[in-house]
Design a protein around this nucleic acid. Sequence first.
DNA 1: GAACATAGTTCCAAATAATAGAACAAGTTC
DNA 2: GAACTTGTTCTATTATTTGGAACTATGTTC
Lengths: 246, 246
Amino acid sequence: MDTTIAKGLRLLNRIAHADAPVGVTAMAKEMGLEKSNVHRTLTTLMTLGYVQKDGATGRYGPTLKVWELGMKVVTRHPMVRAARPFMQMLHQQTQETIHLTILDGADCIYLDQIRAPVPVRSTPVPGHRVPAIFPASGRVQLAFQPNVEEIINVFRTSHPRGKEIKVAATLKEFATIRQQGVTFTESGWSTGINSIAGAIIGRDGFAAAAIAVCGPAERLTLERMEGLSEEVLNACTQAGDSLRGS
Amino acid sequence: MDTTIAKGLRLLNRIAHADAPVGVTAMAKEMGLEKSNVHRTLTTLMTLGYVQKDGATGRYGPTLKVWELGMKVVTRHPMVRAARPFMQMLHQQTQETIHLTILDGADCIYLDQIRAPVPVRSTPVPGHRVPAIFPASGRVQLAFQPNVEEIINVFRTSHPRGKEIKVAATLKEFATIRQQGVTFTESGWSTGINSIAGAIIGRDGFAAAAIAVCGPAERLTLERMEGLSEEVLNACTQAGDSLRGS
DNA sequence: GAACATAGTTCCAAATAATAGAACAAGTTC
DNA sequence: GAACTTGTTCTATTATTTGGAACTATGTTC
């Protein structure tokens, strides 16, 4: 195990997650390293172009190189490539915000989005993680997952609001979702925001991702969402075909 | 200089830039390292969660963790935060694709975008780099830069099409741009795509970023772009105020 | 404005982790 | 099934990272 790399990436992570540039001493204390060690490592990251030093304060912050690297990964991601055209279609039909999410353990990661001209407040941005049980796009994926109960339990033990989840009722609801192919939530993750989501099925027959239409409750009523079921299902099956075909 | 970190990040870069997972031997050869070295480093990156191994082929590819890290950087970026509301406004007014770009040396990086419901083909995606001299959003920033001539020369020597650039004419054009605050291009970077861009001026009085409206020539005619000058200027000054105010 | 903190930087001997290269295992190809 | 190629493991040697103290710069307090 290459501990030096671990240390370097840990520092880079720390810096990227900070809201403001961080000083050497603060980081050294926080991560249990020597000041000199942190300093040298930061200098390395700086010459490599991943970190920059704020001239005035002498503190360190991330550069866009980190982000550029990340964007390379996501634009090449097969799911993003497969889903994008069909997300675009849905957006054209609905004029609402469209999300693409994938499951990572018990979390749901927002992979890509097309924002509505008049967007919803506090919309999740690409890169965000939320517990998969809350939003429609997470639930629809869980419904098409082999080890659902296990994931539900992860969630029940790890999340503060986990105990509210009723296992039996949830499993029953998931069965319904599997039949319909889509699911709705009213104020699922953010209050006042409604959402309808469908699952993109991968080669293995399980959910590989989800596409969701998302908007304020006033505009995206339950009625309207029901009307959109077919469009969402369509987008998902086509994205799935495109994914499996490639 | 912490060479181990450099090696690790070089490998991560290599993997992230690849279109398909890469094998140990190929990388070792390409980067002048021993196979065993590459293997151990990859194993490290894997336990850290930045790299994953394709079960079938045994080759290595990047994980979304790299991307998540990058997204943290850009969503916290002061320019993105400052510009987004005004980009949204412009999008609402025009229904076209809106770009936010910043300058990095002689390059122009696409930082953020809002896609039109009916998008242009081959639109640059966030994370892309293009030579700043071609697109409107690059030119408008160059016009408000202290060391323009230097950058033009970098470009003339480094880019295959660099010799086409006439220095005197370009400088004169930049003077005009400085007066008008915006600039248009017809087929500037991609043929058939027109664009109008304005500069966001930073604390130092130079361009810190640019906002551009971008669309197919049929839809975004020169006439229409001229009509949009004021809106674009407005968005830029407001974004600038918001940036400097924070 | 002098003394005191606090943060960032430099240096070097000691400790430790990374390296090269060979050997082995597991597939592929012919 | 023999000859390649590719991925993986192992270990003595090598070279790099480490810790700690000393130094500098900056700014804070009285």
